[in-house]
Nucleic acid binder design. Structure first.
Length: 425
RNA sequence: GGAGAGGUGGCCGAGUGGUUGAAGGCGCUCCCCUGCUAAGGGAGUAUGGGGUGAUUCCCAUCGAGGGUUCGAAUCCCUCCCUCUCCGCCA
């Protein structure tokens, strides 16, 4: 959520800034709601004050043994008036709140103009796409029977996977490898979190209320949702907390499955492991001091790149343009890995700075010193990396043309010496 | 799943209708005292919001939401959570 005070001061300026991402702010609606809110709140608080003063008088009179009846009667219809103003206020307040919760974050000034992912400028490239003396296969062909979509379709439907044997082991090795690098070399603390969260948690990070169609709902006594990313539970660890300045930054890493409806992508990326309803991810989250978050963004980008470099996978970095930017992000850098089977780069990591946008929804704050007032922290996160897509990239980049896949050197400690996998066709 | 007990400020903990946003203690901050250490004395110390140029002022918050009342931490209802015992169980 954006700062309501700044919003009040300069709604036109905010509307202009939001236009960069193609969001049209309903200024008239905002002004109407804000005016009503202000009027009603002032009137409501005035009546409440009046009532409080009168009630204290009555209390005093009663203690003094006086007759309180005349005082009670002198209040007249204050109670009913207050009730009706309060109801009106609550109505307008929740409408305004809902309005604010649907407004995306303001893009940082450095965010490039553009509408779709095709407009994202490439910042740099690392590594060279491999040259094969045989026709490159895509990961579905390489994996053969180890990738069993016939089974997953029967169990769950489309966009799920069943993997077998060595392929799953490689998948597991990747998770272990990434967690080890981030905890031992990059200073992240590993955390295990719930995969099912409540509405407040989903709202704080920005998935709700606007994107309920994108997430899986779990039926039960209260509304709960499957997490679309570890960002949701991990960032919410600091929800409604006041941290000490000296604790910052907090750096968390968590491996979780991610569940996404992919409701807007019918018929898109239907082959293989590219876009599934369920996939694994190792996620990096940082909670930082507000003037350290841009530095942290660079750090997370570098942390994610380390994984790709150790795995010797060619990739490039792009800066998301205004139109492609996620709802809560002020700026996002995507890392895209080279996929020989598709002959293109695909996202394996998305690293974002949310500034205080999520922190305000979450009321996640810190105190600079023991005496200072609480201030909102900044939150960031990035994949480090998406496991399914990394696995896929290894199958495609390390295929040897003879029905096998070589294991990247960095993973050898995790495969107990096995250097090459062979998949049945 | 069954039975019971609870949820109060950073923490512990009092408070069953009336100047209680909340006693007392611990912690923390500042000051005084003390040759060091230990101890002692005093003052301060919640969060969110609103109006104002500002000091100041006002409103809300004792798990959440409703209700009763002139007035609710305190009474009633619903929900959530925690703990104990029993049952079941990876």
């Amino acid at each position: 959520m954006l700062d309501p005070r700044k919003f009040r001061q300069n709604p036109e300026g905010i509307a202009a800034a939001l236009a960069v991402r193609g969001f049209e702010l309903e200024l008239d609606k905002y002004r109407d709601l804000e005016k009503s809110r202000s009027d009603l709140q002032i009137e409501m608080e005035r009546l409440q004050h009046e009532r409080n003063v009168a009630s204290k008088d009555i209390g005093r009179a009663k203690q003094a043994g006086e007759d309180i009846q005349p005082l009670v009667e002198s209040l007249g219809d204050l109670g009913t008036k207050l009730d009706s103003v309060r109801h009106e206020f609550q109505q307008v307040h929740s409408e305004l709140n809902d309005f604010m919760l649907h407004i995306p974050n303001i893009p940082d000034e450095s965010v490039p103009a553009g509408e779709t992912d095709e407009d994202n400028p490439v910042l740099y490239k690392w590594g060279e796409p491999p040259e094969f003396d045989f026709p490159a296969e895509d990961h579905v062909q390489v994996a053969g029977t180890a990738l069993d979509f016939e089974a997953s379709a029967r169990l769950s439907g489309s966009r799920f996977s069943v993997m077998w044997g060595p392929l799953v082991q490689l998948h597991r090795s990747l998770i272990q490898f990434m967690l080890d690098v981030h905890t031992e070399e990059h200073g992240y603390e590993e955390v295990y979190v719930p995969y099912i969260v409540n509405r407040e948690t989903m709202t704080a990070t920005g998935q709700l209320p606007k994107f309920e169609d994108d997430v899986f709902f779990v039926r039960g006594e209260i509304d709960r949702f499957l997490i679309p990313t570890a960002e949701v539970p991990v960032t919410n660890i600091v929800r409604e907390q006041i941290l000490e300045g000296a604790e910052l930054p907090l750096k968390f890493v968590s491996h979780t499955p991610c569940f996404r409806r992919e409701s807007g992508s019918h018929g898109k990326d239907t082959r293989g492991l590219i876009r599934l309803h369920q996939f694994e991810k190792v996620e990096l989250v940082q909670i930082t001091h507000p003037n350290k978050s841009w530095q942290a963004l660079d750090e997370i980008v570098a942390n994610a790149e380390t994984i790709l470099q150790r795995l010797e996978l060619p990739y490039r970095a792009v800066s998301l343009c205004g139109g492609d930017l996620g709802f809560a992000a002020a700026k996002t850098i995507d890392l895209e890995v080279w996929l020989p089977g598709f002959n293109r780069y695909r996202e394996v990591s998305s690293i974002s700075n949310f500034l205080d946008f999520q922190a305000r929804r979450a009321q996640a704050r810190f105190r600079e010193t023991a005496e200072s007032r609480p201030e909102l922290v900044h939150t960031l996160n990035g994949s480090g990396l998406a496991i399914g897509r990394t696995l896929l990239a290894i199958l495609e980049n390390y295929q040897d043309g003879k029905g096998g896949v070589l294991i990247p050197k960095a993973l050898l400690p995790y495969t107990r010496g096995r250097k090459r996998l062979v998949f049945e066709q």
